[in-house]
Simulated assay, not measured.
Amino acid sequence: MKVLLLAGTSEAKKIAWGLVGQGVNAVASLAGATRDPEPLPLPTRVGGFGGADGFAAFLAEAGITAVIDATHPFAARITNRTAAICAARSVPYVQVLRPPWQAGKGDTWTEIATPQDAASIIPPTATVFLATGRQTLNQFAGLEGRRVICRQIDPPTAPFPFEGGEFVISRPPFSVTREEELFLALGVDWLVVKNAGGKASATKLTAARNLGIPVAMIARPAMPDAARVETPAQALAWVAAL
């Protein structure tokens, strides 16, 4: 057996260490979205596969017999492609998908379907904090005219794609206190978040609740009809059962 771990999340790191602990022959793959990612304890390739044909060729050439998809919940293109190719080639596949966040007492959330929908609910005079990463930044162009702040891990290599935007560069984890201090210092009126789920990255939502900041919550994309687990332990049990 040889397992391919599609990584890039905190769950993937735990799975990687678990595979090592179990003595499983495995390799990891990172999309390359972050310039200096934390190293994994598995042989790791970085970058795309060259589309569906390239991914299928990699599975065959590397002798992959099972795939664990622990990519981000919003990596829909990767997830749907991977699930479809694995199904067509009878390669066992499982998606590791953490539960989505749920609004609680004191939260003021408005769920939206796409980044473009944010402009329809956020006032034109607002200061907006985008905790959505840089890859979909151009999809928020409808927010032009507002003060828009985008947080990302790496320094930008290109200017903000529309007027009124600025970057904040910092690397997680972020405590609730740190998030509150940042939001107050910037005068944030609205927070825009993808519903990625997870405890570590929920601190911004707690900070928004404590400060009375409304949240535009982007709903998750559709997921493939495939095997799915929620935790690293469940993913490792899936591997052990193969």
Results as ranks from 00 to 15, higher is better:
Ala237Arg: 14
Ala235Ser: 05
Gln234Trp: 12
Gly197Asn: 08
Ala202Gly: 07
Pro172Arg: 13
Val229Leu: 01
Pro221Glu: 03
Gly198Asn: 07
Leu186Asn: 10
Leu211Ser: 11
Glu230Gln: 14
Thr203Ser: 14
Trp190Pro: 02
Ser170Cys: 12
Glu181Ser: 13
Val168Leu: 15
Phe174Thr: 01
Val193Arg: 02
Gly187Asn: 08
Ile218Asn: 00
Ser201Met: 02
Ser201Lys: 04
Ala208Thr: 09
Gln234His: 09
Ala207His: 07
Gly212Pro: 02
Ala222Leu: 13
Val176Pro: 00
Asp189Gln: 11
Arg220Tyr: 06
Pro173Phe: 08
Phe183Pro: 05
Thr177Lys: 13
Pro173His: 07
Thr177Pro: 08
Ala185Gly: 14
Ala227His: 12
Glu180Asp: 10
Arg220Lys: 10
Ala226Thr: 11
Thr177Ile: 12
Ala185Thr: 07
Val188His: 03
Leu211Lys: 12
Lys204Asp: 02
Pro172Ala: 09
Met217Trp: 01
Ala237Gln: 15
Pro232Ser: 09
Ser201Pro: 01
Gln234Ser: 14
Pro232Ile: 00
Phe174Ala: 06
Pro172Gln: 11
Trp190Gly: 00
Val193Lys: 02
Phe174Ser: 03
Arg209Phe: 07
Trp238Asn: 04
Ala196Leu: 11
Ala222Glu: 13
Ile213Asp: 07
Ala185Ser: 15
Leu211Cys: 10
Ala235Cys: 05
Ala226Val: 11
Gly197Asp: 09
Arg209Asp: 03
Ala237Leu: 14
Pro224Arg: 04
Trp238Phe: 07
Ala200Ser: 14
Pro221Gly: 06
Met223Asp: 09
Arg228Glu: 12
Asp189Phe: 07
Val176Leu: 04
Asp189Ile: 11
Leu186Gln: 15
Phe183Trp: 12
Leu205Ala: 05
Val193Met: 08
Asn210Trp: 04
Ser170Asn: 13
Ala202Ser: 15
Ile213Ser: 04
Gly187Lys: 02
Phe183Val: 10
Ala227Tyr: 10
Gly187Phe: 05
Thr206Ile: 13
Ala222Pro: 03
Asn210His: 14
Arg209His: 05
Val239Lys: 01
Gly187Gln: 12
Phe174Met: 04
Ser201His: 01
Leu205His: 01
Leu211Trp: 12
Lys194Leu: 07
Val188Ala: 01
Val188Gly: 00
Thr203His: 10
Asp225Trp: 09
Pro214Asp: 11
Arg220Trp: 06
Arg178Cys: 12
Ala207Phe: 03
Asn210Leu: 09
Val229Ile: 11
